[in-house]
Structures are given as structure tokens and as C-alpha cells.
Amino acid sequence: MNQAKTQIKNFISRFITTHDLQEDEDIFTLGFINSMFAMQLVLFLEQEFKITIENEDLDFDNFRTINAMASFIERKLSETVLVR
């Protein structure tokens, strides 16, 4: 999961250059996210981690923090393993 956190932070840091985002900081509350970036973030997570983010997964709580995203990815990856 630490590698996932690093990958997520590196991606976000390309767009948020004025703040050193911590793993537990809420990117929505901080005002760093607009709808365009939210879509880029979803696409990045799908492509980078080879997961499919369904409509029911589009809950703010899955994407608020780096920690939340890493946990979400871990859950999605474990679902993929269980399905196979």
C-alpha cells in the first residue's frame, strides 16, 4: 500500500505544486479539486492500478485523502482477486 500512496501523491503533486500534501489531508476541503481534476484522478487510478471504478465507487470518501485512495485501491484489487 505504501507504493500506491507514493504513486498517488506523485500524481497529485504534478497538479498541486504550492502545497506538500500529506497522506491524511482532505483534498476537497483544501480546495485543490475541481471537476476536471477529479475525472483525471479517477482515470489515473484506473489506469495506474488496473482497476475499474464503477458509478457506486464514486463516493467522495474514497477519494478525500491519499490514505483513503490507497485503501480504496486495495479493496478494489482484492475484489478482483476474489472474482477470479
Rank of each mutant, 00 (worst) to 15 (best):
residue 1 M to I: 10
residue 1 M to W: 10
residue 2 N to G: 09
residue 2 N to C: 06
residue 2 N to R: 14
residue 3 Q to S: 15
residue 3 Q to F: 14
residue 4 A to V: 15
residue 5 K to N: 05
residue 6 T to E: 15
residue 6 T to L: 15
residue 7 Q to Y: 05
residue 8 I to M: 04
residue 8 I to F: 04
residue 8 I to L: 08
residue 9 K to L: 12
residue 9 K to S: 11
residue 10 N to Q: 12
residue 10 N to A: 08
residue 12 I to V: 09
residue 13 S to G: 12
residue 13 S to K: 12
residue 14 R to Q: 10
residue 15 F to H: 11
residue 15 F to E: 03
residue 15 F to K: 08
residue 16 I to E: 00
residue 17 T to Y: 02
residue 17 T to D: 01
residue 18 T to K: 13
residue 19 H to W: 12
residue 20 D to W: 01
residue 20 D to Q: 10
residue 20 D to F: 05
residue 21 L to Q: 06
residue 21 L to M: 05
residue 21 L to N: 07
residue 21 L to G: 00
residue 23 E to C: 06
residue 24 D to V: 02
residue 24 D to K: 10
residue 25 E to H: 07
residue 26 D to P: 04
residue 26 D to K: 07
residue 27 I to R: 07
residue 27 I to C: 02
residue 28 F to H: 08
residue 29 T to H: 12
residue 29 T to R: 15
residue 29 T to I: 11
residue 30 L to P: 00
residue 32 F to I: 05
residue 33 I to Q: 01
residue 35 S to Y: 12
residue 37 F to T: 01
residue 37 F to G: 01
residue 37 F to Y: 05
residue 37 F to C: 00
residue 38 A to D: 03
residue 38 A to R: 04
residue 39 M to W: 00
residue 40 Q to K: 11
residue 41 L to C: 02
residue 41 L to Y: 03
residue 41 L to M: 11
residue 42 V to E: 06
residue 42 V to G: 00
residue 42 V to Q: 03
residue 43 L to G: 10
residue 44 F to N: 02
residue 44 F to C: 01
residue 45 L to D: 00
residue 45 L to E: 02
residue 48 E to W: 05
residue 49 F to V: 08
residue 50 K to E: 07
residue 50 K to T: 06
residue 50 K to Q: 12
residue 50 K to R: 10
residue 51 I to Y: 00
residue 51 I to T: 01
residue 51 I to V: 10
residue 53 I to D: 04
residue 54 E to Y: 11
residue 55 N to Y: 11
residue 56 E to C: 07
residue 56 E to G: 08
residue 57 D to M: 03
residue 58 L to Y: 10
residue 58 L to Q: 09
residue 58 L to R: 12
residue 59 D to C: 07
residue 61 D to N: 13
residue 61 D to I: 10
residue 61 D to C: 08
residue 62 N to L: 00
residue 62 N to M: 02
residue 63 F to V: 00
residue 64 R to D: 00
residue 64 R to M: 00
residue 64 R to K: 11
residue 65 T to E: 04
residue 65 T to P: 02
residue 66 I to V: 10
residue 67 N to G: 10
residue 67 N to K: 12
residue 68 A to P: 04
residue 69 M to W: 04
residue 70 A to P: 04
residue 70 A to R: 03
residue 71 S to E: 15
residue 71 S to Q: 15
residue 73 I to A: 05
residue 73 I to P: 03
residue 75 R to K: 15
residue 76 K to I: 06
residue 76 K to Y: 05
residue 76 K to E: 11
residue 76 K to M: 12
residue 77 L to D: 07
residue 77 L to G: 08
residue 78 S to E: 15
residue 78 S to W: 13
residue 78 S to R: 15
residue 79 E to I: 03
residue 79 E to L: 13
residue 80 T to G: 10
residue 80 T to A: 14
residue 82 L to Y: 06
residue 83 V to W: 05
